[in-house]
Amino acid sequence: MTTATPKAPLRSAAMIASIADAGVPTTKAPLGAALNKVAESDPRIVGLSADLAKYTDMHIFRDKFPDRFFQMGMAEQSLLMAAAGMAEVGLVPFASTYSVFATRRAYDFLCLDIAEPNINVNIMAALPGLTTGYGPSHQATEDINILRGIPNLTIIDPCDAVDIEQAIPQLVDTPGPTYTRLLRGAVPRILDQYDYEFELGKAKVVRPGDDALLVSSGLMTMRALLVAEELSKQGIEVSVLHCATIKPFDEETVAREVNTDRPVFTLENHTVIGGLFSCVAEALAKQGIGKKIHHIALPDEFLAAGALPTLHDRYGLSKNAVLERVLQELKKP
């Protein structure tokens, strides 16, 4: 079900606030619906959660397939080890928890029990980056940086419900492990307004434009598209390149799109260290492309707690903050 999102209130609950901007439609719990659809014809699919099914949208799967759902309690190491065992016997597990717990608390289990044997365990990690106002204990601002160095691991940073819905079947068919920065609850739905299809491992030009290039991932692609539409009203045509897959990174497409005379910005809901900006810079360096990249990202610090709209303004991720930053750079001589 898709509904229009009302204008963001001045205050919002730190944990459950939607990250959809005003006027952007939303879809409720797209992970659960997409997983149920695939599971109807694939009995190998099982769901697990570490006492967070309701808060990672896994409860949708639990309610429809109770015999294929496993509640592991508040024990993320056990969650990943159980998922690894299921994958070893031919099942396709989707394990859900918060990003901070999957990365900081259960890293060794993800690395050695799942990635090293290269088995199909799909980790659906909610509250990535600055999608909760509960402070550093719940804000996974560095999860991509932590995980990029693990061999065999595919990392997905979806923009919206369209990305999630289209990614699930492809994750089922991916032989090795995957980590998805899950958007939960009322998830934005914006990519279906463009000629876009999710393709694992590929970056896609969602919106063309000759005046600047915004290279984005995750919810920041929503912001990039909204900013591009605003700039278009001012006669400035901005291209948006969406990198839904962070690893393996589509270096060829990114380098081709960046290697023009257009100013380039990276936009990510992640610390500036080790995320999308780093991926782009590495890709350009490998190909000998000298190009200045303006980065819009979270700072290298522990972030404050509070209401999400306030925090996104404070740390430069809101639509207005991005718009102001891009205009500022474009107006420079």
Rank of each mutant, 00 (worst) to 15 (best):
T2E: 02
A13R: 15
I16K: 13
G23E: 04
T26G: 08
P30I: 11
G32E: 14
R44Q: 08
S49R: 01
A53L: 03
K64S: 14
P66K: 02
D67L: 11
R68W: 06
R68T: 07
F70Y: 15
E76V: 09
A83K: 07
G85I: 09
L91I: 14
V92N: 02
A102W: 13
R104W: 09
R104E: 14
Y107V: 10
Y107W: 14
D108R: 03
E116H: 14
N122Q: 06
A126P: 08
P128N: 12
G129F: 06
G129H: 13
I144S: 04
L147T: 10
L153G: 09
C159K: 04
L171W: 04
P177M: 11
T178A: 04
Y179V: 08
R184T: 13
A186Q: 07
V187N: 01
Y194I: 00
Y194E: 02
Y196H: 12
A212W: 15
L213S: 03
L214C: 09
V215M: 02
L219I: 15
M220F: 05
R223E: 03
C243R: 01
T245Y: 00
E251R: 05
T260L: 00
T260S: 05
F265L: 09
N269I: 13
G275R: 10
L276M: 12
A281M: 12
A285Y: 00
K286V: 11
Q287L: 03
I289R: 06
K291A: 07
A297Q: 09
F302V: 09
T310K: 15
T310D: 15
R314P: 02
R314M: 11
Y315R: 01
R325K: 15
